[in-house]
Simulated scan of single mutants.
Amino acid sequence: MTHVIGSDAEALDVAGKLSQHIAEEAADRDTARRPPRAELDLISGSGLLGITVPARYGGAGAGAATVAEVFRLLAMGDPNLAQIPQSHFVYVNVLKQQGDAAQREFFFGEVLTGKRFGNAQSEAGTRHVQDYRTRLRADGAGDYVLTGEKHYSTGALFADWIPVLALADDGLPYVAYVPGGAPGVEIVDDWAGMGQRLTASGTVRLTDVRVPAGHVVPHHLTFTGPQLHGAYAQLLHAAIDVGIAGAALRDAADFVRTRSRPWFESGYGTATEDPLLIQRFGELTVRLRAAETLLAEAGRAVDAARADLTEDSAAAASIAVAVAKAHADGTAIELADAVFEVSGTRSSLEALNLHRHWRNARTHTLHDPVRWKIQHIGRYTLNGTHPPRHGVI
């Protein structure tokens, strides 16, 4: 039976304990490419997937800052198990913003029983990432038929519901919530990335999938006024990067304490006494603490904007998240690489699988380019220009 979490504090406590548990076999799961179904079931049963359901529907109504910290903790345990539910939280948020009363009642009830949302959003072979060819056609009887093919469908393989982004007959984007086992839905586990190997970010094929009107949400309305959709989604991605960085520093320190020999020129008996290593760990800690602080600040900015949503507050929140994400990307890659710098040759042994931190960081940070975030940050700082209304800032 799925537990229902009642507060932000409880959510953080549960996430911290789960992080420690899923960290225990993270390296072995990655080596074996073992799908983390059992671990996902633990997350579902813990109640974490329902923490953002509003209190009036029976959830904790957790804020963005809390959710970001939950994701950071989970990513420290295993970033695969943090990335898989990222879309879950994003599409619960879509229902909060654009779902009608009946849709919220039904789907929030599903979430509180531990049901998981995946995603079918990105497409390959189109002009750019927001060029969608998947179509949601009216069937003439009040419902819809969905046809298309999606790629990078993180979490779909493990999902009870797959939110599908598609263009309707009016040319505007909608989200159709489709059962994972619906007729016409084919989920192909063909993700073969070097990192984030266990997210099952493969292909979803949709062939004449029937969708009742009550399972379709007008996502295009999200972007007609001040919105936090992109900031919220990006906040969770930033949290995953910060979690990867924290795990890398944790494992590097453990390796140096327990396995490293001192460099002979240091004159010390243990590696932990080497002043050059001490210096480097200090530098890496500063980088990590800065990333954690920027993440927390961004979460608070999103919460503040949600409490008083205006064009200015939405822009400030998006920029705060962009700053956190831009810093987190580089920090995750630097710290994952530094594992080997501070630990020496033995840390490169395949059996240890310490390179998973770098592979995970490098793969996850490819999600969207930081260079465009820097552009929007610069325009905002210099000219007061608000960032655009789309889902990746």
Rank of each mutant, 00 (worst) to 15 (best):
D143H: 10
D143F: 04
V145G: 02
L146V: 03
L146Q: 02
L146Y: 05
L146D: 00
L146F: 07
T147N: 09
G148C: 11
G148W: 12
E149K: 12
H151T: 15
H151V: 13
H151W: 11
Y152D: 05
S153G: 03
T154C: 06
T154P: 02
T154W: 05
T154K: 07
A156D: 06
L157S: 08
L157D: 02
F158W: 03
A159E: 07
A159V: 03
A159Q: 02
D160F: 04
W161Q: 09
W161G: 01
W161T: 13
W161I: 14
I162H: 08
P163N: 06
P163M: 03
P163E: 14
V164N: 05
V164D: 03
L167D: 04
A168I: 03
D169M: 10
D169G: 00
D169H: 07
D170G: 12
D170C: 04
G171M: 08
G171L: 03
L172Q: 14
L172I: 04
P173A: 15
Y174P: 00
V175G: 04
V175A: 10
Y177F: 14
V178L: 10
V178D: 00
P179E: 10
G180M: 05
G181A: 09
A182F: 08
P183M: 15
P183H: 14
V185P: 00
E186D: 05
E186W: 06
I187Y: 04
V188Y: 05
D190L: 11
D190V: 09
D190M: 11
W191F: 13
W191Q: 06
W191P: 00
W191N: 06
G193I: 08
G193C: 08
M194S: 12
M194G: 14
G195Y: 04
G195D: 01
Q196P: 00
R197S: 02
L198R: 09
S201I: 03
T203G: 11
T203D: 06
T203K: 12
V204T: 03
T207Y: 08
T207F: 06
T207Q: 15
D208V: 02
D208F: 02
D208I: 07
R210W: 11
R210C: 05
V211Y: 09
A213W: 08
H215P: 00
H215A: 15
V216S: 01
V217A: 14
P218R: 13
P218D: 07
P218Y: 09
H219M: 15
H219T: 08
H220M: 02
L221E: 13
L221K: 13
L221C: 00
L221S: 06
L221D: 04
T224S: 14
T224V: 08
T224H: 13
G225P: 00
G225C: 01
P226D: 10
